[in-house]
């Protein structure tokens, strides 16, 4: 464990807490893409299959349970909670994310560390996470004005993977046989997708203005 990875995990946890706060406090999920939430639930379920077979640390197990639990709770809330689902931007959240799932699964069958079921699913979860934010970014551009909590949620979600890239660089230089090129390349793509969001987020912070994404 290094400071970049711990900070990355805490940033990821913070993004989830901000999203839960938004949904719980405002009883609204406007501006939040249900498709991105569903993709993230799938990412965690596919990646944390070894939750009960490979014990790595208490921290690792607890965080996995938190990520799986919170992502499923958010999907459930946006689908079933009568107050919350009324505020869901159904007509804006139309990105066909099933193509992302199919594409990532095919890629995982072709490019993986070992052609074994757990490894293919792990690679699938890595690729899927890299593109899972696309429906959310598309929704933000379509809905124009972004409320603060939603903006902070997306910012934290993007920042955590950027911190993981620093973690991979650190581990590459400090651990002899470290190679996570699949996670690294996917992480770079994932972070690059946030580039223009980070730019407008920084502008809104600098000018102390409302976050506006050009539609």
């Amino acid at each position: 464990m290094n400071v970049f990875r711990l900070t990355g995990d805490m940033t990821h946890l913070a993004s989830i807490l901000v999203l839960l706060l938004k949904i719980y406090a405002t009883k609204s999920c406007s501006g939040i893409s249900l498709k991105t939430q569903e993709l993230y639930a799938l990412v965690f379920l596919a990646r944390y299959l070894n939750l009960f077979t490979d014990f790595i640390s208490v921290y690792n197990t607890v965080m996995k349970l938190v990520f799986i639990g919170s992502s499923l709770a958010i999907v459930w809330c946006m689908r079933m909670h009568k107050m919350v689902k009324r505020s869901y931007d159904q007509e804006l959240d139309t990105f066909r994310h099933y193509f992302l799932i199919a594409g990532c699964f095919l890629l995982a069958l072709l490019v993986n560390e070992k052609f074994m079921f757990p490894e293919v699913l792990w690679a699938f979860s890595i690729y899927l996470e890299a593109v899972s934010t696309i429906p959310q970014l598309v929704l933000l551009q379509r809905s124009g004005n972004v409320d603060n909590l939603t903006g902070q949620y997306v910012f934290l979600l993007g920042a955590y993977r950027a911190l993981y890239i620093l973690n991979w660089i650190y581990r590459y230089f400090t651990e002899p046989h470290f190679s996570r090129w699949i996670a690294c390349v996917a992480g770079l793509v994932q972070t690059a997708l946030y580039a223009d969001f980070f730019y407008y987020y920084f502008l809104s912070w600098k000018n102390n203005a409302k976050l506006q994404l050009p539609s």
């Binding site: 990875r5 995990d9 990821h12 990646r47 070894n50 490979d54 790595i56 690792n60 965080m63 996995k64 990520f67 560390e113 070992k114 490894e119 792990w122 993981y164 973690n167 996570r180 996670a183």
Partner: peptide, 10 residues
Amino acid sequence: LLEREHHDEL
């Protein structure tokens, strides 16, 4: 013995 690639990261 090939140490199985442990995915120790989240």
